[in-house]
Design a protein around this nucleic acid. Structure first.
Lengths: 225, 225
DNA sequence: GGCAAGAATGAAACATGTTCTAATTACGTC
DNA sequence: GACGTAATTAGAACATGTTTCATTCTTGCC
């Protein structure tokens, strides 16, 4: 892409209206492929959870070769983590529109977890697949998982304060210092553990919410009573 | 070895001192096999973690056919969870000998986690394998994992009280009601999450202990200061 | 239009957890 | 000591995540 490359995109008034952004088109095709892959994985996960996401099926459905699939994603978990990130983005966006209601931090926290758990439980197989994909070992995957946890913690902080999540805030793992951050961190751990229990059938949706509420009461004080 | 076999063991006074509990001997052989399997798995796990525990290798080392191995254990995780249970038994026994020292609950909790984390970090590959095997999905395995968590929570409770763990206490998952139980439950979640981070290289041993200390401070108050 | 570089493809190959099978062995009973 | 049952074995077979490879397609460029 030496001389040319200038894609005549927005405001490229210039002479030739030629090649509709060659580079951009490639990228678009690649994005399309990626999207098809993720969509196929999600569809399969919705039907049968983690195990139902057989990569050969994903490749077939997304009309992509197995090798291509592995060029885009390092592993099966990687695909599902990508979907998880999109899911979290949706959740963040929906929270950004209006803050969680509630009279005090405990109430808001509980309400936040109630909604988030609800959202997951609505597509149980899919949620199980996502949770399962967070229980991995290798470093690269772990980094992405840590990123997810930080974003969730940020949402928890916002919910606690009764504010809207600041999508531009640090996301810095080192910032586990302030009391609020510690609370968010701990609550995140509790929630996640409860979800793991739920995803394996040891816990109900109500149970998850109850566990989280108990922890919130312990840390912040009982909002009822 | 047809006729012989009767081992003249303790108290077979009666007329025929023959067959020294035939059933028992079978059981003993089976126990021996089981033990060899677990020992082989542990050895391999110590060297190379979860992935190094290749079941074909385990079978070969323990001089058992693959099919036999699967008669004793439902899965790879099942073997490692068995080892984990033994590990926890050891830890419980060592705690039972003398209580954790410390002037207040927070100090004792921190000391407990310091020791427990230390014990794990001493055999990092093995610990990683155990932690990895706790991140599974199917129900049966999950039940065993829940059992492990309850035992850990019991130790946490004991440490907090500065007592020795009561090995005969309920272990009933329903008893998440008292404040102390909730604390133990939450601390267990925090510790486990931190360990998962450690096992994937995102966290150091010090980091794990620090996370746990922060949580303990949050919930119980800072013991230093 | 033709070319070189990179991407994608189809299919095979691999690694390893798990299951299955036929043959063998161990063991308690008679 | 012979018999039948249950356990064990060796090994193949299967399922699925992952890798590899030779071939074909795309794309941007001359």
């Amino acid at each position: 892409m030496s001389t040319r490359s200038r894609t005549p995109d927005a405001g490229s008034a210039g002479g030739l209206a030629e090649a509709p952004a060659p580079v951009a088109r490639v990228a678009t095709n690649q994005l399309r492929r990626m999207r098809r892959i993720v969509d196929a994985a999600v569809e399969l996960a919705e039907k049968g959870g983690f195990e139902a996401v057989r990569l050969r099926d994903v490749a077939e459905r997304s009309e992509v070769a197995l090798g291509t699939l592995y060029k885009y994603f390092r592993s099966k978990e990687d695909i599902l983590l990508f979907a998880l990130n999109e899911e979290i983005e949706r959740l963040e966006a929906s929270l950004a529109s209006r803050a969680i209601p509630g009279d005090d931090p405990t109430a808001r926290l509980t309400e936040f977890f109630r909604r988030a758990t609800r959202a997951l439980a609505r597509r149980p197989q899919f949620a199980r697949a996502l949770i399962r994909s967070m229980a991995t070992g290798d470093k690269d995957t772990a980094v992405k998982i840590a990123g997810v946890q930080l974003r969730v913690a940020r949402m928890i902080s916002a919910a606690m304060r009764g504010e809207v999540p600041d999508l531009g805030s640090p996301l810095d793992p080192g910032k586990i210092d302030s009391r609020e951050h510690v609370i968010a961190f701990v609550m995140n751990n509790v929630w996640f553990s409860a979800l793991v229990g739920w995803s394996s059938g040891l816990n109900t949706e109500r149970g998850v919410i109850e566990h989280v509420r108990l922890a919130a009461d312990l840390i912040l004080g009982d909002s009822r009573s």
